[in-house]
Simulated assay, not measured.
Amino acid sequence: MTELDLAVPFSGIDPRGRVKFSVLLEMFQEMADADASKYGLSVRQTLEHNITWVLRKYRIELEKYPTKESGDIHIKTYAEPCRNLFSLRSFKLWDSRGEFLGSAYTWWVLLDFVKQRPMRLDKCELMTAFKERVNEVLPPDVKIPAVTAPSIEETWKVRWQDLDVNDHTNNAVYFSWALDTVPDEVPEFMEPALAEGEFIHPIPRTRVRCLTQEVETEKGRAFLHSLRHIEDDTEYAKLYSRWMEK
């Protein structure tokens, strides 16, 4: 388990004084790397053994959206086995006054880089640090419906700076693309309270389109997002975002 206070850079604040969502995800990545490195399980360390981590699912639940007034963000993270198929990493975050901001969860698969096959956690000698459960109750699984009637479409080119150490598009970029497709009035007057992702295929350096569909929700506004190859329509990821008024 690792706990750190992370400062929000000036460039990480949006025009309405909120922490940019992508910056929040980058904070989670920094925390995850710091914690995994203690056990020799960071991506850089596992690659030395021809093993790497592949993100499969992500959920971010914010009770209060962080702003520049939040000060340093205190984040706690830990990882644990989930059905011996996933490493479930949990995050909890608070503002500088100790007010709880929300939680995030990521599900990771351990991949044999040579065979390109997932590995069971109990079959890997590196995973001795992950033999114990932490949460008494695991978070609900992430299952995102397909986009069936998109009303918005945006396209992007994967840039060099979008890539991570696995030479694939970083997961924070997925969310940036998806959340950027909502109508302009949504980020202007609302904040993302829930964001989820299912990652199907890694995105190399290519061109991508995002199809977005608004769906019914009891509170706020909600959207389904599908990231696809711009030519052959391969689906790379499915995402969901729910926005609430400030």
Rank of each mutant, 00 (worst) to 15 (best):
T2S: 10
L6I: 11
V8Q: 12
S11H: 13
S11N: 11
R16D: 06
R18V: 08
R18G: 10
R18Q: 14
V19G: 05
L25S: 10
L25D: 09
M27N: 10
Q29K: 14
A34Q: 12
A34C: 06
D35M: 13
D35K: 10
V43K: 12
R44G: 03
Q45N: 03
E48M: 00
H49D: 09
N50W: 14
N50F: 14
I51M: 11
T52Y: 08
W53S: 13
V54D: 01
L55N: 07
I60S: 04
P66L: 07
T67I: 12
T67L: 12
E69W: 09
E69D: 15
I73D: 08
H74S: 14
I75V: 10
I75R: 01
T77L: 01
A79M: 14
A79G: 15
E80K: 07
P81N: 12
C82E: 13
C82L: 15
R83V: 03
N84A: 08
L85R: 13
F86M: 01
L88N: 05
F91T: 01
L93K: 01
D95I: 04
S96Y: 10
G98L: 02
F100S: 02
A104H: 02
Y105D: 05
Y105N: 08
W107P: 04
W107S: 07
L110F: 01
L111A: 04
K115M: 14
R117F: 06
R117D: 08
P118M: 09
L121R: 10
K123C: 03
C124W: 03
M127N: 12
V134H: 09
L138M: 13
P139E: 00
V142R: 07
K143R: 04
I144D: 03
I144N: 04
P145M: 02
V147C: 03
P150V: 02
I152K: 09
E153C: 08
W156L: 00
W156S: 03
K157Q: 11
V158M: 07
V165P: 02
N166F: 11
N166L: 15
D167G: 09
T169L: 13
N170C: 09
N171A: 11
A172L: 03
S176V: 00
W177E: 02
D180P: 00
V186I: 15
E188G: 03
P192H: 07
A193Y: 02
E196M: 15
G197K: 09
G197R: 06
G197E: 07
F199Q: 08
I200M: 10
H201I: 05
I203Q: 05
P204R: 05
R205P: 00
T206K: 12
T206R: 12
V208H: 05
V208K: 03
R209P: 00
C210E: 04
C210S: 06
E214M: 07
E214R: 14
V215K: 10
V215L: 10
T217W: 00
E218K: 11
A222W: 02
R228D: 02
E231M: 05
E231C: 02
E231R: 13
D232M: 01
D233W: 03
T234S: 03
E235V: 15
A237G: 05
L239R: 07
W243F: 09
W243P: 06
